[in-house]
Design a protein around this nucleic acid. Structure first.
Lengths: 224, 224
DNA sequence: AGTAACCGGAGTACTTCTCTCCGAATCCGG
DNA sequence: CCGGATTCGGAGAGAAGTACTCCGGTTACT
């Protein structure tokens, strides 16, 4: 029954608090640069503390990641809602997409978490946050797209799940961008967005993913 | 001075020849289904022979892969050249792209080999074949695109290296397609192609990769 | 000063993959 | 149909990497 609020843990000793902070900061940096496959050992050293310290503060990598990315998630949903306030429907949609993709281009860990399981073998469970965010995101994004369709600037056969696919595809361009030290991902995002734009092109082949399929796709785990 | 031609190796014993065949066939299947990270052990068992046998016929995975994919490579260059004969420039270009992508959708190993190093950590050297094929492919592809541009159906700011990027991006959609047992990659390829089409859209941001950058991008290897 | 809380990182306990080795089985010429 | 050369098969050595623990020593707080 200690329920929701954290138990009345006594305040951390000063060195402990300092180290916890350092670990969170280091985690953010390392995850951003190297992705989620970074080791807790690695993060600990980058934070200038021993491995033991890391494992005392966070039982494992997942817990650390959850602590680090919680904010980013909420921020994301927030910006989707905010986009609905933007005047021009096309601008609202593409603006949201661009800022989302930009954030992930700068943070490999965030990108891997958002597309978790789809590419990387071990999905890395960050408790329920992930499913939650996808659900929370779906509604405002669907509204954003609906509006753009009505105004005639988004192709009629586009679906919200297409955005998930686009995010997935952008992953490879991030790698390339890093290799050439130049944000080429912008070029390919634009290509994709130009494809989404309504231009009297024929309809797309293959139905878009439905929501169940998307879940499936984002949860590809090896079975032996 | 034994030079080019294979040394006059005596014909293999019948069981040896049979096993070699079985290994090549199994390799093709396993690589296609599981990608290049498949183990030689795995392929050996799938072929119904012991691991030792596999290593006697092929010093390592690379050598087996080279033997398997040599043909596919040549075939690819061939089809690029053939596309130049097609009447309609847009049809020629997209037809070539679609068939290339389709082939890779069905063969994860082939796709990984063509985009080697860009995503997977260990590039897996298949002697010089890889660089050779990229070079051999560049010329006909560039011609194909030039023709499409002149006829006004391909956006002016498209570059041959963009096709490499598109191939890279398609990788994620292959994974999704497998997960949902439906070739959704076709949908996203079309989206990309519609983006490439000339529609009076603004020019793309960021210059395309130049050839050196592409090489760099396709050779991202971890440095510690 | 005393003690509870905390630190550090060597070390354990996996897992995973590549490739070797050698007794046993198989082929094939005479 | 026999004997030696060739090939088979798969246990296991060795290398590489990761997740997490343990405990002597240190630090913060009263």
């Amino acid at each position: 029954m200690t329920s929701t609020a954290d138990a009345p843990t006594r305040p951390l000793r000063r060195d402990a608090a300092r180290n916890r902070r350092a670990l969170l900061d280091a985690g953010r940096e390392v995850f951003a640069a190297r992705g989620l496959e970074a080791t807790l050992d690695e993060i600990a050293h980058h934070a200038g503390v021993g491995v033991g310290t890391a494992y005392r503060h966070f039982a494992n990598k997942q817990e650390l990641a959850a602590a680090i990315f919680k904010d980013d998630f909420e921020q994301l949903v927030e910006s989707a809602r905010a986009a609905l306030e933007v005047e021009d429907p096309w601008q609202a949609l593409t603006g949201f997409i661009e800022s989302t993709v930009a954030k992930q281009a700068d943070d490999r860990g965030l990108h891997e978490l958002m597309t978790a399981g789809a590419m990387n073998e071990q999905p890395m469970q960050v408790d329920g946050k992930l499913e939650t965010i996808r659900e929370a995101l779906f509604e405002p994004v669907a509204a954003l797209m609906e509006r753009a369709k009505k105004s005639g600037c988004l192709r009629q056969d586009a679906s919200p799940t297409d955005l998930a696919a686009i995010l997935l595809m952008m992953g490879s361009t991030f790698t390339v961008s890093e290799a050439v030290s130049r944000p080429v991902w912008k070029r390919y995002l634009r290509l994709l967005l130009d494809g989404l734009r309504c231009t009297g092109c024929a309809t797309l082949p293959e139905d878009a993913l439905d929501v169940d399929e998307l879940d499936l796709a984002l949860a590809v785990v090896k079975k032996h």
